[in-house]
Nucleic acid binder design. Sequence first.
DNA 1: CTCCCGATAT
DNA 2: ATATCAGGAG
Length: 212
Amino acid sequence: MRNKSEVNKILAALDKEYHDAWCTLDHRDPLQLLVATILSAQCTDERVNLVTADLFKKYKKAADYANAALTDLEDDIRSTGFFRNKAKSINALGQALEEKYKGQVPDKLDELVKLPGVGRKTANVVLGTAFNIPGLAVDTHVSRFAGRTGLSNNKNAVKIEFDLMNQIPKKKWVKFSHQVIAHGRRICKARKPDCPICPLLELCPFGQSSQR
DNA sequence: CTCCCGATAT
DNA sequence: ATATCAGGAG
């Protein structure tokens, strides 16, 4: 956790460098975003967009995923990895949406996380990006950033989510995730971070430590 | 905690 | 060869 002044400096630096950061998963409606986000587990958004370009032409509604043969769905998403689990989730997701929500995607966190293949991260992405409802999505980039900048000392994604929500104004939650992901891809990378050219260097304990 | 898994960078 | 990529279920 950082003090309020430090947090404000971090947020200001992110706003300056990543003013227009937004979701990079291609989608036209909440269902498309939900499916794309499930596919994005341990996979680059670039790969997901390649797959969904064809997938969304073939599957338009929740019922289309519900009625699909698992083997077909697996073939359609194979290159995103974890394809058996993801196909099973998306198929069951389509069925759950049909049965409980008339094929529509719910806009409440507690309902989203009960859907097959949907955890807090995916639920928060959909809430924030598709419905404009405050939610702080904690993925691999946000976890790494929170640890390096000292915004959270926890490893558990849910604990990190609450640490961040306690320090960041609710109005900034959605944008924050998008900005940190952009930063994580460009500079604050997992493997070889470019700390020397990082605009947040003087605000970051990790960037200034010797064990990079 | 382990398992799921293909594509890409290092 | 190995690490990593917008995680979630059992």
